[in-house]
Simulated scan of single mutants.
Amino acid sequence: MAGYQLEFRRNDHPMDNREHEELALLGHVPAAHIVDLTDLGIVVESTARDNLERVATQVPPPSMSQSFLAPVDGVKNKRCQEWTMDVVYISGAGSGIGRASALQFVADGARKLAIVDIVSGGLQQSTALIKERSSHVDLLSIVADLSKEEEVHRVFAEIQQRFGRLDVAVNCAGITGTYLPIEQLSSADLDKVLNVNLRSLWLCEKAQIEQFMRQEERPVITGLGTKTRGSIVNIASMLGTITMPHASPYVMSKHGVVGLTKTDALDYANRGIRVNAICPGFIQTNLLDSTGWEALAPLCAATPMNRLGTAEEVAFVVTFLASDRASFMTGSVVLADGGYTVK
């Protein structure tokens, strides 16, 4: 019997089954009734339409900030199960895209997370937000400077000790550095950006792939017959594909991230490891918080969508690329820039 998975969210977080809410959505499926309710979603299955209308009339659906509809086999909620057994690592998780990605993984059902940031205060805030969203997450929070090789070794040793494996790695840590013409920059300005944005990512990706290679392949959850050892998503930048005045260290670092992504994707494509990159445009994160909105107006005007993107919009792309649903994607460089680079 054909079925569908329907997930409702209120105020950007999944509803808990302890609320005992029965929900149905008319118009998206020809006929349905609720057969299972979890804290991450609802599974519905085909049945007589009058049953659906009766349920929906008695308990109208709430306002939804987001809803997702995806096919499943019978009544098995694959979306809710997708991340349940996986161990997800996210760097730069104390703010911005890293924090938004962590929260989105939790919303999608992740139950084992390792989050890392160099700023303890931001990491504590992210930890609190994750625990607020779900009490079922086994969360490992680590303060570390990933530009130091010994710190990278410590982080992944802790992950191995806590969880025994790694399935998904999202490398978000990064800085903008100093924007000046090259004759006004020092080698220290260059080293600072390259150490954080490129060298540390290389060290982390090396550790991640080493861990993946120690693991046995597992079948993908989509039932397509392929297997995986792990998936890496690197946060680059649209400046990894184009350039901008006075930004040579940053542009160099992000072009390097794109190059590293493609190289490792090629080297490990037949070993069950996927490596992809996302190139965000101008995103409303803490990297832009220090800039007044008047200064940001030209950035918005230069973007065809005429606005800044949000960290949450990038996080949706992150979780898709990391998932088994993107099982034929590796070496991809996905732009999320509001159309900036198509001009």
Rank of each mutant, 00 (worst) to 15 (best):
G27Y: 11
G27I: 03
G27M: 05
G27S: 02
G27C: 03
H28W: 09
H28P: 01
H28F: 08
H28Q: 12
H28C: 08
V29K: 02
V29S: 03
P30E: 10
P30A: 00
P30Y: 03
A31V: 03
A31C: 02
A31H: 03
A31D: 10
A32G: 04
A32Q: 14
H33V: 01
H33P: 01
H33E: 15
I34Y: 01
I34V: 05
I34Q: 01
I34T: 12
I34R: 01
I34P: 01
V35M: 00
V35D: 04
V35R: 05
V35Q: 03
D36P: 00
D36W: 00
L37N: 09
L37M: 06
L37F: 06
L37K: 11
L37G: 01
T38K: 03
D39F: 05
D39T: 07
D39V: 01
L40G: 11
L40H: 15
L40C: 11
G41F: 01
G41Y: 04
G41I: 07
G41W: 05
G41E: 10
G41L: 06
I42L: 10
V43P: 13
V43H: 02
V43D: 09
V44D: 10
V44N: 10
V44M: 08
V44W: 05
V44S: 06
V44T: 05
E45W: 12
E45R: 13
E45F: 07
E45G: 03
S46H: 15
S46Q: 09
S46R: 08
S46T: 10
S46G: 05
S46D: 12
S46C: 04
T47C: 12
T47K: 05
T47S: 14
T47I: 02
A48K: 14
A48F: 14
R49N: 14
R49W: 15
R49K: 14
D50R: 05
N51I: 02
N51A: 08
N51H: 13
L52K: 12
L52A: 12
L52I: 00
L52E: 15
L52F: 11
E53W: 10
E53Q: 09
E53S: 12
E53D: 13
E53R: 13
R54P: 00
R54V: 02
R54K: 14
R54C: 04
R54W: 06
R54T: 12
V55P: 00
A56P: 03
A56Q: 14
A56N: 14
A56W: 01
T57A: 15
T57L: 06
T57Y: 04
Q58P: 00
Q58W: 02
Q58F: 03
Q58V: 04
Q58L: 13
Q58K: 10
